[in-house]
Amino acid sequence: MTTERVYGGLPRLERRERRRQRLLEAALDAIGEGGLKGLSLRSVCARAGLTSRYFYESFRDLDELLVALFDRVADEVTGATLDAVAQAPWDALARAHAGLEAAIHVITDDHRKAKLLLISGSGPESLQRRRREQLVQVATVMSKLTRDFYGADRVTPTDARLTTITFAAGYVELLHEWLSGSLPVSRTRLVDHMARIFVASATVHSGRAAAPPPSE
């Protein structure tokens, strides 16, 4: 039986994870200051106080680091959203408002995360692909929440998926416009408008056959 060697009071895997998080945080700092132009292996390692050896311990290249960083922020947004919805009153508008407010709070209260979101649609292909994948995952979570609230007999899986993918895509683009300064409205109005749109569309259905034209 072998035991894991411990240095500085921390086992090897925990030390490795801490180094990984330092690199991610350093990358977020670099993006916050200069966008993708300020991101390089050298700058990330310098900010993290680590050598390139430790960079390659966790990531193959900068693209993989960017995807991991995007995943970390996306997970934070999803977690905050679910927590807020769970604590909100059992009311459609209140729950939609709470979830959207929590998501925007995570993004807008840290300019680095806002900058990451802004570049995610025009960065490396791997980052753009993960952005699309995360959008579908967000829609899946929203679809489940919608059916749990309204009832599976009122909102079919297909209707819920059609609605939530449409909303999630529109939400991301609207947030992008707002963060870039192209949409001069308050955060309060932005959240309220999006919440009302979601509630208005949540129970839209299109599965029934179209009614035949009236006979003459």
Rank of each mutant, 00 (worst) to 15 (best):
A74L: 04
P124C: 06
D91R: 05
V67A: 03
A68I: 00
R53I: 11
D110Y: 04
D110C: 01
Q137T: 14
V77C: 08
H97D: 11
L69R: 02
L118G: 03
A80M: 08
D75R: 15
V85I: 14
Q137C: 04
L62M: 13
V67Y: 10
D91F: 03
D109L: 09
L127V: 11
A102G: 06
T81A: 01
A103Y: 12
H105K: 13
L127M: 12
F59D: 01
L93T: 11
S52F: 02
V73Q: 14
L135T: 15
L117E: 10
S58A: 15
V85Y: 02
Y56G: 05
R131Y: 14
E76L: 08
V77R: 07
D110P: 00
T78E: 14
F59G: 00
Q128V: 08
E101N: 09
A88I: 06
E76D: 14
L100N: 04
S58K: 12
L100D: 00
I104T: 13
Q128W: 00
G121N: 10
L93R: 10
S58E: 13
D83P: 01
L100G: 10
A139T: 08
R132H: 07
D109I: 00
L69K: 03
S120A: 15
D110I: 00
V138N: 07
V138T: 09
L93Y: 09
I107W: 13
D91V: 02
R95N: 06
L117A: 11
L62Q: 08
W90L: 00
R132L: 10
P124Q: 12
S122N: 10
V77Y: 08
F55G: 02
Q128I: 06
L66M: 14
K115M: 07
A139S: 14
R129N: 05
Y54H: 15
G121Y: 12
A114M: 07
L69I: 00
A96R: 04
D61K: 10
P89I: 08
G123F: 06
R60C: 00
E57P: 01
L116E: 05
V136G: 01
R53M: 11
L135W: 05
I119N: 03
S126W: 04
A94E: 13
S122I: 13
D61S: 11
L93A: 09
S120L: 05
L65C: 04
D110V: 02
V67H: 11
H97Q: 11
A96M: 09
A86P: 10
R60P: 00
E76H: 09
H97F: 04
A88G: 09
D71N: 10
K115Q: 12
L135G: 09
F59I: 02
T140E: 13
V106R: 12
A103H: 12
R130G: 00
D109R: 15
D91K: 03
H97K: 06
A103S: 15
Q134E: 15
L65M: 05
